[in-house]
Write a protein that binds this DNA or RNA. Sequence first.
RNA 1: GGCGCGAUGGCGGAGUGGUGACGCAGCGGAUUGCAAAUCCGUGUACACGAGUUCGAUUCUCGUUCGCGCCUCCA
Length: 445
Amino acid sequence: MTDIYVYNTETRAKQKFEPIDAKNIRMYVCGVTVYDYAHIGNARPYTVFDLLYRLLRHVYGTEHVTYARNITDIEDKIMQRAADEGVGIKTITSRYTKIFKEDMQSLGSLDPDLEPKATEHLPQMIKMMRDLIEKGHAYVADGHVMFHVPSMENYGRLSRHSRDELVAGARVEVASFKKDPADFVLWKPSTDDQVGWNSPWGRGRPGWHLECSCMVEEHLGTEIDIHAGGQDLIFPHHENEIAQSECTHGKQFVRYWMHNGYLTVDGVKMSKSLGNFYTIRELLEQHGGEAMRLSLLTAHYRQPVDFSHDNAVEQKKRLDRWYRLVDGVAPASEVPSSVINALSDDLNTPKALAALDALATSETAASLKAGAQFMGLLMQSSDEWFKGGLGESIDVDEVEGLIEDRLKARQNKDFSESDRIRDRLAEMGVLLEDGPSGTSWRKAD
RNA sequence: GGCGCGAUGGCGGAGUGGUGACGCAGCGGAUUGCAAAUCCGUGUACACGAGUUCGAUUCUCGUUCGCGCCUCCA
């Protein structure tokens, strides 16, 4: 069996992956908050950890791996958006959930086994808060339920932030009802015009961290193999998940914590708050799903990746070359070991892509296709790739008729006529390629 | 201030204690009426300083520069 190595944020080291139960491997990736179109930075974790999912399924068997990716469908930004549009939050969340799922599919990610929604886990959250209060880890204050950070001995071990450092470096004003400045919210009260649920502590809504702890427990159990997400979630989100789950259950919550680096634009982190973002939608329209997927995979997942249109165009050219080679070729039955080995080494996608390039010869095209498809690439036929998509209405019959005319002109050595036809096709967005076996065409970029 | 990441050729980006991946771009050639595509060939790099070593881009320390997190954030 192939050994998989992953970098564990908690130990800050690359470790051999040893499943809790090889017949029941569980991974959880923090999903999106559905209040707007997702940006391409959001897509990075779901793309790289999709590869981890594929790898685990390959090594341990499809039926032995469960991947959950939640939908955060209650959050203040959602409420704000709903209020702005004068609609209920469900209208907002179902709209953007649908868009998000479509985007992920366009980027070539497999659907997770489970996509739990926060709002469907209120009873579990109330139960966890009860447990935490009973065990002395949480308290009620001013309509809030707060987690009491000093009640947990090794709080901060994931981010390596001590409670004292946190308090000293805090940029946010400390609410007066907190017993300790580091305490965080499990439940907050809602006013009458805000969305809320009844609870033993009054009508309110859950804090973000609580949701994930409860969804993990509900669907995957109290101890799971892998929990992943963006680096910005290490603190406070994942730190607080550990606090909630471990103080509730008294056992190690997660074996391996994995975090991807940021996607940047012009070297700066892409984020909604900075406004320097591209939505997945707009980039899919410009570059297509596979080029965007490949673009996201060109850097190792823990490194920052700087998004640029030039890179997307470059990756499209790489795909063009591969698609030419695999035209009409059936994928090999085995995924090339060079690809599996590269991915098994902490998801080394640049190395895996180099392995594909090494297979990009006419002799090894079947292996290239198998390896690429394993990574969610080369999923179309070459004809679809070169001629389809883009929605530009290209009339195939007209194109082929003009190619015939041009061929006749060329046979008559009437090159000014043949070039005129080629120019006309170019205006239609069609590029010609004269090969030994005749003339083929593809849509222009 | 605390915690952490990085610095490789024109660009992107692996990797290694000792003959410099890979992609895109460039250049030369083949092919072509021309172009495109394809094929062959080809140049350029390891931030700086010190240390360890027979030998360091690779290990150690320091410096400089860049980036992120420190309760919105994938």
